[in-house]
Design a binder for these strands. Sequence first.
RNA 1: GGGGGAAUGCCCGAGUGGUUAAAGGGGACGGGCUGUAAACCCGUUAGCUUAGCUUUCGUAGGUUCGAAUCCUACUUCCCCCA
Length: 401
Amino acid sequence: MTETPLPSEVDVRGFLAGTVACHTEADLASKLKLSRPLRIKLGVDPSSPDLHLGHAVQLRYLRRLQDQGHLPVLIIGDATARVGDPTGRNATRPQLNAEQAAANAQTYLEQAGQVLDLDRAEIVHNGDWFDRMGFMDAIELGAFMTVARMLERDTFATRHAAGVPIGIHEFLYPLMQARDSVEVRADVEIGGTDQTFNLLVGRDVMRDAGLEPQVCVTLPILPGLDGVQKMSKSLGNAVGLKDPPTEMFGKVMSVPDAQMAEYFGLCTDEDPQRVETLLAGSPREAKAALARSITAIYHDEDAAARASAEFDRVFRDRGLPDEIPESELPTDLVEDDGAWIVRVLTHLDLAPSGSAARRLIKEGGVKVDGEKVQDEQARLSRGSHALVQVGKRRFHRVVVP
RNA sequence: GGGGGAAUGCCCGAGUGGUUAAAGGGGACGGGCUGUAAACCCGUUAGCUUAGCUUUCGUAGGUUCGAAUCCUACUUCCCCCA
């Protein structure tokens, strides 16, 4: 018994396309009826200066709402960054100092601007209000939460059970985030599904402040390049929005096959029909299309095409990349019979230590001018130019004085 | 305040006097293969011009022919009781 959807229901569906959950749809429907731009809050902690595709999932969603006429309210969490969001952490986060937070915030905005139109967004820093609050204000905020409720959270439950310490300040984090919602009078707050608890606390705190509770919309979490854990810079499984084209392309090529569909959906604007066709075909081709599509978003079509061509050249055909760093060896590295390969490798940072360099040679991972180096004692003769290669993808041209 | 426990290599984690530079796993790196920096298989994973030497198991001392393993003090952390 399907009924004809009311106009607001249509709006709700459009609003929520691609999201995971919404608390509550009824609230959202009534907010949409206000026929004014909704204030969409996204809180970001400048804890790490580099944004990656995981952040972009949220930014891209925000961009869509922005294009529907809503107003993104970006909260730069310079205060919250100094506390550290415990979500998903099995250890207390390092607390940032004010300068680090400020510097990170700057680069954050630069990168967010690749996705969002910052001229049509409101940007605020939560230090503006938290720095003014006194200790008693914080206590009052703390009265909002019960220890039992906090301990129900998986993050804390796990840590508590494992005997990993939990700082009191970490309990305050969700309350700070909730307080932000009051300050900016958020209509809607968005975040990853792992943020559900934090988002919902905002509803309670807003209600108490005599405001309409915000609608909480959660978005899927993008898995990292390992295909298992969530994308995160500290896990080293992230594709940075600032990554140069070839690196971005290459990293996407290392996404496990099973995650391709998810990446297409969350990171690209590709038409679902086309995606289906691609996924039905050669996985190699599909992934190349994915990599190209993503690279084009953060660079341009041209750069993506070049990155794609270079990838084929370097990895499929075992050729040389476009740009190879070049440098001249310092003279103190060069002896009468030339420059010792082990020293050259460590000097160029192609190996972290002499022992590691020797190991690489033993493993057959070092080539000079395309020839595998067999002898650890090999020298690059004086006055020569040499192309040094380690593994499949690290190249360096050196001039031996 | 009282009692108990823990600190090991990039991470997790075994190891309670002697082939222990330290099991196993993860990660990373290298090789092979390929459809890619997927998957799979193999190898490497402290430093040092390396058949050898030096340093490493929270810190500082001590016992011993010999210690990550025993003792003392210190530091840090966790748990339980109050």
